[in-house]
Design a protein around this nucleic acid. Sequence first.
DNA 1: AAGATTTGACCTGT
DNA 2: ACAGGTCAAATCTT
Length: 275
Amino acid sequence: MTLDTPAAVVLELMTMGQQSAAHLGDLLRAASPAASSPHQELAAEILRCCGRVIDALSATAAATSGRKRKAAAAAEYHQDAAAAGGGTSWSPPPPPGPPLKRRARGAEATKEVTSGTTVDGFIWRKYGQKDINGHKHPRLYYRCAHKDQGCNATRRVQQTQDQPAAYEIAYYGEHTCKGAATAWQQLGAAPAVVDFGSNSWGSADTNRGSPASMSQGGWSSSASSEVGFEALHEWHDTAAPDPVMEFLDGCFGWESVLQDRFGFGGLLHDIATFQ
DNA sequence: AAGATTTGACCTGT
DNA sequence: ACAGGTCAAATCTT
């Protein structure tokens, strides 16, 4: 991907932010492995926010380039139907449209490789696992927990061969569930395609223990994000393990890149506070 | 008891 | 025919 457009730059930087937040979460877990602390939840919240922006931008880019997945096309059917209704607000997809077709092998997907836990704001339910030829580890299949809302987003997780701690995650389909749409309405972005990729409540291994048992506040990004950032600063100013402090010191300056390049400071602030 | 996960079977695209 | 994706009953967890 080039950085020729503002969207590309935002995508790149949000990806960096997501990786940084994942790293932060790992550090926090290492610092207090006993139970999930508010600090870890804050790191998870940051990951969720980054993931939403990344997926929204990715979807926009894919739509612009005219390449669409089959699953995306099915989701689009619902959105077109909703748009025909004339409303600007989110409409529940449920009555399901045409039967969802099995996606073609190697169908286009939004892919990312993560080390260990990632969190991107959606709740996934595992629906299958398969041993894949040429892969030492099984492939895991997840779908959005809000399938009952007509959300057809799915996620495929494959542990990489050479790096056991790394997971290749492919996202298919579009999130059409209500929580995602609400978040963007609060952002004022109102994307034509309500598409937010993804989420992983941890790696294939850490995922055990029910994603839904974690905070479902991922849908209510507005309030939770703002509180989260305030708490993060408060925590940053008080007690924190040294490795975490070092990590944060190295990461909090990345937004200057945007200001230097496109003067996106205001946008960043809006994204950070979801207001 | 309800909801989530596991896993073998079945379905479909290549 | 085979490999990969999904279904759904059984099982597990909370």
